[in-house]
Write a protein that binds this DNA or RNA. Structure first.
Length: 850
RNA sequence: GCGGACGUGGUGGAAUUGGUAUACACAACAGACUUAAAAUCUGUCGGUCGCAAGACCAUGCGGGUUCAAGUCCCGCCGUCCGCACCA
């Protein structure tokens, strides 16, 4: 860089160091419980310490920082903390692959990522930092487990897991690939294991109902949660079984189709299936085959639907002598309803596919209105209509038939109306080391015994090895050995740890008092909660957010909190994507190794191989299309990186990372810096009000617009408005327009404050201020300046644009008509025809119909 | 498979929520400055036809509602997210 360039360019590095030190010095971002100002709690989803920050983090934390800095300028007492979602599988994988202890790996990653986040200049209260893997955090989680247990919110029962028979270890769904263990390659089996469950289903109705109160959540997230909870009103019907004393309980939401039933199907895990399998090797084999699909619902649903005819027959409750074959079918989930259904192929697609496959009857019992010769082909009919082929239900509509059949079945004692939820209890036991230990012991005499508060924390042992698969806690005889809290005899510790979703279900509460001796300090929690603005990826729309909502209720029930809903406002951001590059052999190549060849081609920087450019995809290590934020910040500065993150793409949509985009942002930062640099000396020292109404309108319209956009999360629009204002100000002559330029530059500087905080401080100083933008108020606008005297409105003839007219604001229809008719394009389009109607929307449009 | 979203110039996108489609930015092209390049500044920039005025076409595809549709409704196509042990 030449001397000349140094003089004409914004020296971001010095600036960033200077202002970050100034903020730190003055403790600008430390939060206290100031009751004189309204509080505002801004939170971004805390990161998993995977190694280095990625662009997704940069985008997420930039958005949160814009909100935090903006709200601070608006006079709010802002809490904006940061922490680490530090337990999880990657640390154990690293331990196996790189022979490094999970704790060491995790804490080193945290140090790196904290340093990187600080480079961004975020307005975070770092004194509140927490890491979920630290005993100071997880001891409180253990305490709450004990409290929840006592409050009846937890129970222990058996649950299914994916079992790798070769590695003799439990696998996560993502570790099962095509039905095989990812390391061993062995076909997985389903196994029953004793597990702890949070009874989230006790709150199913409440979690559903309360969605209506979450007005500042995206509609799509509320809808997804609502569907996930999946309330259904149906009927539990008890079928008699031929040659058996017991009955088969099925659950259905379409009892009206009972006369179209042609089979029953039960889950491979249904007790009846197990019983029959005891005497049937073929059925046993079939059930084992189903188990190879693992526990993933997505896999089960996508697998080919297969069944096994048990030979059992269920008696139809209303048709004398009619019996239905009972199948064991791989798509029936034991977790939903009763684990058994009756199938009506004509009116359910899955049942129809099954019936066609096994050649079962397809009898339509609901016919759409005004239809003759109704037949079912390859598509089931699930719409409304009249009942037919259904004895006493004939002629009724679907709703009436549902009600009638329910009445009859209840009266006959063959079943009951039942509300069901798709939502299942939350299994929290994990057979892994790097998680929060579950604070219970197993005693031969007393059974499962919870520890007491005095025994906490149960700390993970450090001396563990990962040289073989399985949970190291399980083989740690010293750590496991403990005296039973009840009888004092030797007992063993529970070796399962918590699902990491437990850690992230209450961290927002812990941030309100991170040093408290109890899980929360109610004074602080009641002051700060709920989170006013939460920001994170859409991928967490269901599980993390639903678990957190449950957890808050559980904390309230046990006295650790005082409200049900932890998150008042939610925003879900899009992902960061980048083009992908591949060699002819199909190997992925990093963007750093790409150079442009002749024409529109790209070649490998080192090997010179020709490369194909693939479409933009989510940045991922596997496709090597990642850009390291630290490289970008070092090259262009934090403000440029932040500005690019906010420009162009709407925050809820995916953002395409491009070289052109980041250099464009860099050029803008410099352009603005030069504008102030070149005009600062010519500006009046005492602010005066300019007579230039046009420019002042532009300035105040920008302030009004940016304010509105920031409130609505339209950051890309704020950026466009700031571009426009800077373009306008650039055209001014500092010597003659000094007063209005001064007003404009002061406004721009404060408007970019939340987005490019270092540059804003730098410009503020250049404009002669000794205060900090970080401690300044948000600029106000004068609404009276925004009113325009005349408006330009569109003129249409029969809905087609024919020109525009400029008339007075709120002009009468007569004025608008006269102006419109005077347009040659209008008279030409009318061609002498009679005018039938004129539609006039003041300040918008006039439409002449002929 | 089920549930949820998204689709506008060469590119990212804007559109007062049913009222002038393409703001703002990028890329490209032309010019100025420069020995030259970079940087910077100025101009052009949806498509077709036309010297021009202008006309016609265009918001994934096909229908519909309306004086008026990117926006609302119906049906397709494509892409993405979630599916309970990844975080």
């Amino acid at each position: 860089m030449s001397v000349d360039e140094k003089l004409s360019r914004y020296a971001f590095k010095a600036s960033e160091d200077r202002w970050q030190a100034a903020w730190e010095d003055r403790q600008c971002f430390s939060a206290g419980e100031d009751r004189d100002r309204p509080k505002y709690y801004v939170l971004e989803m805390f990161p998993y310490p995977s190694g280095r920050i990625h662009m997704g983090h940069v985008r997420n934390y930039t958005m949160g920082d814009v909100v935090a800095r903006y709200k601070r300028a608006r006079g709010f007492n802002v809490l904006h903390p940061m922490g680490w979602d530090a337990f999880g599988m990657p640390a154990e994988n690293a331990a196996m692959e790189k022979k490094v202890h999970p704790a060491e790996w995790t804490y080193a990653n945290i140090d790196t990522m904290r340093r990187q986040l600080k480079m961004m200049g975020l307005s975070i209260d770092w004194s509140r930092e927490i890491a979920t893997c630290h005993p100071d955090y997880y001891r409180h989680e253990q305490q709450m487990f004990l409290d929840f247990l006592e409050a009846g919110l937890i129970e222990q029962r058996e649950g299914w897991v994916n079992w790798d028979p070769v590695d003799r270890t439990v696998l996560a769904n993502e570790q099962v690939i095509d039905g095989k263990g990812w390391r061993s390659g062995a076909p997985v089996e389903k196994r029953r294991l004793s597990q702890w469950f949070f009874k989230i289903t006790d709150y199913a109705q409440d979690l559903l109902d309360a969605l209506d109160t979450l007005g500042r959540w995206p509609e799509k997230v509320r809808l997804m949660q609502s569907n996930w909870i999946g309330r259904s009103e149906g009927l539990r019907i008890s079928f008699e079984l031929e040659d058996r004393d017991d009955r088969l309980e099925v659950y259905t939401t379409r009892p009206d189709t009972i006369f179209g039933a042609s089979f029953c199907a039960i889950s491979p895990e249904h007790p009846v299936a197990a019983q029959l399998a005891a005497d049937s090797a073929v059925l046993t084999e079939f059930i084992e085959e189903c188990g190879k699909l693992g526990t993933s619902e997505a896999v089960i649903e996508q697998a080919e639907k297969i069944g096994f005819d048990t030979g059992l027959r269920a008696r139809h409750p209303f048709v004398n002598g009619k019996t239905l074959p009972v199948y064991v079918a791989n798509f029936i989930l034991m977790e939903y309803g009763t684990g058994a259904i009756f199938g009506c192929p004509a009116h359910d697609q899955r049942d129809l596919d099954f019936a066609r496959k096994y050649d079962l009857d397809v009898l339509p019992v609901v016919v759409p209105k005004d239809t003759e010769d109704f037949v079912i082909g390859d598509e089931a009919y699930t719409g409304s209509g009249r009942l037919t082929n259904s004895d006493f239900l004939d002629g009724l509509d679907v709703e009436a038939a549902k009600s009638e059949i329910a009445n009859r079945i209840e009266a006959a004692g063959h079943g009951t109306r039942e509300v069901n939820f798709r939502l299942r209890d939350w299994g929290i036991s994990r057979q892994r080391y790097w998680g929060c230990p579950i604070p219970v012991v197993h005693c031969d005499d007393c059974g499962v015994v919870p520890l007491t508060a005095a025994d906490l924390p149960v700390v993970l042992p450090d001396d563990v090895s990962f040289d073989r698969p399985g949970n190291p806690l399980d083989r740690h005889e010293v750590w496991k050995a403990v005296d039973c809290p009840k009888c004092g005899k030797p007992a063993t510790r529970e070796t399962d740890t918590f699902d990491t979703f437990v850690d992230s279900s209450w961290y927002f509460a812990r941030f309100t008092a991170p040093q408290a001796d109890a899980p929360t300090d109610r004074n602080a929690a009641d002051y700060w909660l709920p989170v006013d603005q939460y920001i994170g990826g859409i991928e967490h729309a269901i599980l993390h957010l639903l678990y957190s909502r449950f957890f808050m209720r559980a904390m309230t029930k046990t006295g650790h909190a005082g409200m049900d809903e932890p998150i008042a406002g939610l925003f879900t951001q899009g992902m960061i994507c980048h083009e992908t590059y591949q060699t002819e052999a199909g190997e992925w190549v990093e963007p750093a190794n790409i150079v442009e060849g002749d024409g529109n081609t790209f070649i490998h920087a080192e090997t010179g191989e020709p490369l194909t450019v693939g479409r933009s995809e989510k940045m991922s290590k596997s496709k090597k299309n990642v850009i390291d934020p630290e490289d970008i910040i070092k090259t262009y500065g934090a403000d440029t990186a932040r500005w690019f993150m906010l420009s162009d793409s709407p925050p809820d949509r995916d953002l395409d990372w491009t070289e052109a985009g980041i250099t464009g942002a860099w050029r803008f930062a410099n352009r603005l810096w030069r504008l102030v640099e070149n005009s600062a000396d010519s500006l009046p020292t005492e602010p005066t009000i300019s007579e230039n109404a046009e420019i002042r309108r532009a300035i105040h319209a920008a302030i009004a617009g940016v304010t509105e956009d920031l409130e609505a999360f339209h950051f890309n629009r704020s950026v466009a408005r700031i571009h426009e204002l800077v373009n306008t100000l650039s055209d001014l002559e500092p010597k003659t327009d000094g007063d209005v330029l001064h007003e404009g530059l002061e406004a721009v500087t404060r408007l970019i404050g939340p987005m490019m905080p270092h540059l804003a401080e730098e410009l503020w100083k250049m404009l002669g201020h000794e205060t900090l933008v970080a401690e300044s108020d948000w600029p106000a606008f004068d609404a009276s300046l925004l009113v325009q005297e005349t408006v330009k409105i569109a003129v249409q003839v029969r809905g087609k644009m024919r020109g525009t007219i400029e008339i007075a604001n709120d002009a009468d229809q007569a004025v608008a008509e006269a102006a419109a008719m005077a347009l040659p394009t209008v008279t030409a389009a009318l061609d002498g025809d009679e005018i039938k109607k004129i539609i006039y929307v003041p300040n918008r449009i006039i439409n002449v119909i002929h």
